[in-house]
Each structure stands twice: as C-alpha cells, then as structure tokens.
Amino acid sequence: MDRKKKAQLVRHFTEAIPFSNALSMRLDELGEGDAVISMPHDDRFVGDPATGVIHGGAVSALMDTTGGAAVMSHPDAPVVTATLDLRIDYMRAATPGQRIVCRAECYHVTRSVAFMRAWAHDDDSDNPIATATGAFTADGGKTTDKSAGAPT
C-alpha cells in the first residue's frame, strides 16, 4: 500500500471511532509512526468535582487512541491493531478548562508487536500531565482471539 493511501486509511479509521468522537477528540497530526490527538475540556469528563480536573480514565482513552493511531501509521505495521497493554503514569492534574494534547510515537515494530510511548500535556507543554507506554498487536489481525472479537 502506498504511503498516501495508508495515511488516508488511518486518518479515516481514527476519525470514525465512536468513543473517541464521544470525547470530542481531534486528530491534529499524523506522521509515519507518530500522531498527535487532542481533547477539549468538558465538564462531563470531570473526575474530581472538588477540583474540576478531568478524570484519568478520559486521559487514558486519549493516550490509547493516539497510541493506536501512531502504531497504524507506522510503515511496518498493519492498519489493524489492538492494545495488549498500556501503562499510564500521572504526573499532575490537567488544568481545568485547557485542551489536553497527546503525542504518541511508535518506536519499534516486530512481526507481531508494536511498541509505543506517549506524552500528554495542556497549555504548559513543558510540564507533562501524563506519560504512557504500551504494546499493541501488529500481526494484521491473525490472532483471532485478540483482534477478531469473535467468541471462541
């Protein structure tokens, strides 16, 4: 598949994810093995009403989506993937009202696994809110129990 066609496919897939749309995510940049996706502040996504800070789970969803897009955009990875594991470290609370921007990089792909890391920040881009590392499937959906979703 040529590069342009693959980028189009990944963009199309990423922009059609229902839960990412429910969180109002926006695909800002898509490279070859890296992606930037951002999410606005929304009172519905708040996890701690005492502070108005966005729930960690919403940040996790942003990290997972951006990581998946970075993996799919990698030249050596297929345009179908599933998360195997994801570790998120929370450095600080996101400032209420500010957009959360996540940058993910797929830094290695084997025949079956893609490895990625991601950073999220708000307006203070030098001071991350959270970082993540994850492993994603990269076998083109051959492992039916992970990727096909059919009950076995």
């Binding site: 994810i17 990290m63 997972d64 994801l86 998120i88 990727s147």
Partner: peptide, 17 residues
C-alpha cells in the same frame, strides 16, 4: 463505547476508564 466499529469491540480507553 465502541473503539473498533469493524469488529465491533469496546474502545481500549473505555476499558481503561
């Protein structure tokens, strides 16, 4: 809650949340 409409499967971010 869907993350992959082709399967369909719940979004990994939903599971994490």
């Amino acid at each position: 809650l869907i993350g992959n409409p082709a399967l369909p499967a719940i979004h990994g971010g939903v599971t994490a949340s």
